[in-house]
Simulated assay, not measured.
Amino acid sequence: MAEAVRSDLVSRLRIVRPLCPDHRTGTHPKAVSDRAVWSCTPEAHASEPVC
């Protein structure tokens, strides 16, 4: 669901959210240890939990 909302924002409004607080780049949802987190693409680290 998180990816669908993120993709919709990008395609319709040209808004990339959420951003990695460390790198200021777009993130993608990813499952890590049974938790959903936003993963930073360039560094491949979990930036924050998906709420």
Rank of each mutant, 00 (worst) to 15 (best):
V37M: 15
L19K: 11
S47A: 14
P29V: 12
R12F: 06
C20H: 02
L19E: 08
R24H: 05
S7T: 07
P18G: 10
R35Q: 10
T27Y: 11
I15A: 02
S39M: 12
A46G: 07
S11Y: 14
P42A: 00
E43R: 11
R17K: 14
E48S: 14
V16R: 15
A4C: 00
L19H: 06
E43Q: 10
S7P: 00
E3R: 10
E43D: 11
C51E: 14
S11P: 05
H23V: 01
E3C: 01
V5P: 00
R12L: 08
S7W: 09
C40S: 02
W38Q: 14
M1F: 03
A2V: 05
R35A: 04
L13E: 10
R24K: 07
M1E: 03
C40F: 05
R24T: 00
A36P: 00
A44I: 00
S39A: 04
R6A: 15
A46N: 10
R24N: 02
S33E: 00
R17S: 12
P42K: 02
P21S: 07
S33G: 01
T41C: 02
P21I: 07
V50E: 11
M1W: 05
D22H: 08
P29A: 10
D34A: 04
S7I: 05
H45K: 06
K30P: 01
T25C: 04
L13F: 11
L19I: 06
G26I: 03
E3L: 08
D8P: 00
C20E: 03
R24G: 00
L9H: 14
A31M: 08
R12T: 08
V10C: 06
D22A: 05
E3P: 00
R14Y: 13
A2S: 04
A2C: 04
P18S: 11
V10M: 11
V5E: 04
P49L: 07
P29W: 10
G26W: 08
R17M: 14
V50R: 12
P21T: 03
P21A: 04
R35S: 06
L19F: 08
G26T: 01
A46P: 11
A46L: 06
S11R: 15
V5D: 01
V50A: 09
S7F: 08
A2T: 02
